[in-house]
Amino acid sequence: MTDPALQMTGVRKVYGSGDQEVVALDCDELTIAEDEIVALVGPSGSGKTTLCSIAGGLLQATEGTVEVGGRDITELSASELTDFRRTAVGFVFQTVNLVPFLTARENLLVVDELGGRRSRNGAKAKERADQLLDELGLTDRAGNLSSELSGGQRQRVAIGRALMNDPALVLFDEPTSALDSKLGDQVVKLIRDEMKSRGTAAIIVTHDDRITHYADRTVHIEDGRITD
C-alpha cells in the first residue's frame, strides 16, 4: 500500500476574527487514494476552492495537518510551498490562464523554466511536453500562440501544463464552467483518461452533476463541512 494522494486531518480555515469570523473550511477527515478521482460538489461559498487551495499548497490551513503523497506540507514555509507546487501538484483553473504570448508547447515548458537553473530538466521536459501534447491531441497546434487556440484547446493545454511535473495530485477547480456542455463533457472525459492512464489522483470541483459520473467518488461539501 502506497501513501494516499491526499490526507487531510482536522483541517480548518478561518477568515477574519471576532464577529467577522468566517469558517471557510472545517474538514475532520478526507483521504484520497493514490489513483482516485474525486468529484467535489457543493453550493457556492461552501469551501470547495478553499479545500483545493489548501490541498495544493496555495493557502495555509488555520489548523490541522495536510499530507500530499505522504509528504506533510502543514509546516512548510512560503518558498518551500512554491517548490512544492512546482514539483508535486498540478492545477487547472476555471478561467483561461495560459501565458498569452507563449505557444501551446511553451506554456507546458513554463513549468520547467520556472524552476530556475538548478532544478531544470531541459531536454527531458521537452520530450514530456511533446508526449503530453500528443496525448491531448494538440500536436498540430503546438506552435500556436494560446490566443490562437479555441477555448477547449486552451483548457487541454492547461491540463497538459498541470501534468508536466508528474504530480501526485491534480486539482481542477471548475475546469469546464467556461466551456459549453458538449466541450465540457469531452474535456472531463479527457481528464479521466489522462488520470487513469497515469494512475494520478485528482479532485474535480464542479457544479455539474454529469461530471460526477466520470469520478470514482463524489464528495459533498456544505458550509465548509464534508457531508458524506
Binding site: 518558498s79 512546482r86 483553473f93 513554463v110 513549468v111 520556472l114 530556475g116 498541470a162
Partner: peptide
C-alpha cells in the same frame, strides 16, 4: 498569480 500558483517564485 497563476505563475506563482504553478510554482514560480
Amino acid at each position: 498569480g497563476i505563475l506563482k500558483a504553478i510554482g514560480g517564485s
